[in-house]
Simulated assay, not measured.
Amino acid sequence: MRTTWGMHTSLQIVEVRMNHFQFKFQTDFDLNRVLKDGPWSFDNQLLMLKRWHKGMVGAPFDMVTPQIATEVGSRLGAVEDVERHIREDTPNYFMRVQVAFPISKPLRRGGFIADSDGERTWVNFKYERLPILCHFCGHLRHDLNHYASHLVPEKIGGVVDYQY
């Protein structure tokens, strides 16, 4: 796309998640020209362009750092480890944090983080290697069979909303 748009060094392209890219233009003129002159295609596929705004894909990219991950993890419990990426120039889509937290409370599904401007963004938490987890209430000490309110609707073909 750099060659097509005539911006060999003045365009940064960052993959923010699978099949989603952020194009960083040096000037508003270049950005507006590319948006106006579309539609564009890449590798025989239509390239959908939309002006970027904060909160489009989870946490702001400049906030996916080990320092922020440690701060967010400390809200859950005692941070034991934060995964460090080998290369600093590769984008981080997520941060893996090992946290020791009380099992008497339900797991948190996410939380807000604030950027340098004070704008708050909701970030979903994902958990790995959990023992028995109740997908109904979020506690680790039992599973779904603990709740009759879960079993009855499922037996008669109803739908149960699992929060976790």
Score class of each variant (00 low, 15 high):
Tyr127Gln: 01
Met1Asp: 04
Tyr127Cys: 02
Tyr93Leu: 13
Pro91Arg: 13
Ala148His: 13
Ile68Val: 15
Val34Leu: 11
Val16Cys: 11
Glu119Tyr: 11
Pro60Met: 00
Leu151Tyr: 08
His20Ala: 15
Asp115Gln: 01
Leu140Gln: 09
Asn19Pro: 10
His150Glu: 14
Tyr147Phe: 14
Gln12Glu: 15
Leu11Glu: 12
Leu35Trp: 10
Phe23Ala: 11
Leu49Pro: 05
Gly157Leu: 03
Phe125Pro: 00
Gly110Leu: 07
Pro131Lys: 05
Phe25Cys: 05
Met95Ser: 13
His20Ile: 14
Gly157His: 00
Gly58Met: 01
Gln45Ala: 12
Asn124His: 03
Thr27Met: 09
Thr121Asn: 09
Gly110Pro: 03
Val97Pro: 00
Pro39Phe: 05
Arg17Ile: 02
Gln22Gly: 10
Val14Thr: 13
Gly111Ser: 02
Pro91Val: 11
Ala59Ser: 04
Met95Ile: 15
Tyr162Ser: 03
Ala114Ile: 05
Ser149Arg: 09
Phe42Glu: 02
Leu76Ala: 06
Val34Thr: 15
Lys24Leu: 14
Arg51Cys: 00
Asn32Glu: 06
Val82Trp: 01
Thr70Asn: 04
Leu49Asp: 00
Pro153His: 05
Glu154Cys: 09
Ser116Lys: 06
Val79Phe: 04
Phe112Val: 03
Val79Asn: 10
Leu47Glu: 09
Leu31Ala: 07
His85Glu: 05
Gln26Thr: 14
Ile132Tyr: 00
Met7Ser: 05
Gly138Tyr: 06
Pro153Lys: 10
Met18Lys: 15
Trp122Tyr: 08
Lys105Ile: 08
His20Cys: 12
Lys54Asp: 00
Arg75Phe: 11
Ala148Pro: 07
Asn19Gly: 09
Asn19Asp: 14
Lys50Leu: 04
Lys126Gly: 07
Asp81Trp: 05
Met48Tyr: 02
Arg33Pro: 07
Val72Lys: 02
Phe94Tyr: 15
Cys134Asn: 06
Phe21Tyr: 15
Ser149Ala: 15
Met56Ile: 03
Val64Thr: 09
Ile103Phe: 01
Lys155Met: 01
Ile156Cys: 01
Val123Glu: 04
Arg109His: 06
Trp5Ser: 09
Phe101Leu: 14
Gly77Phe: 06
Ile86Gln: 14
Gln163Ile: 12
Leu46Gly: 04
Pro39Cys: 07
Asp161Pro: 10
Arg87Cys: 06
Val123Cys: 07
Leu46Ala: 08
Val57Cys: 08
Arg33Glu: 14
Met63Cys: 07
Pro153Ser: 06
Gln22Lys: 11
Gly110Tyr: 01
His135Phe: 02
Val123Ala: 13
His139Ile: 14
Pro106Tyr: 01
Thr9Asn: 15
Lys155Asp: 03
Tyr127Arg: 05
Arg75Ser: 12
His146Trp: 07
Trp122Ile: 08
Arg33Ala: 13
Glu88His: 13
Gly118Tyr: 02
Asp37Gln: 13
Arg2Lys: 10
Arg51Trp: 02
Gln163Glu: 05
Gln45Ser: 12
Pro106Met: 05
Asn19Arg: 10
Glu15Val: 09
Ile132Phe: 01
Val152Ile: 12
Ile103Met: 04
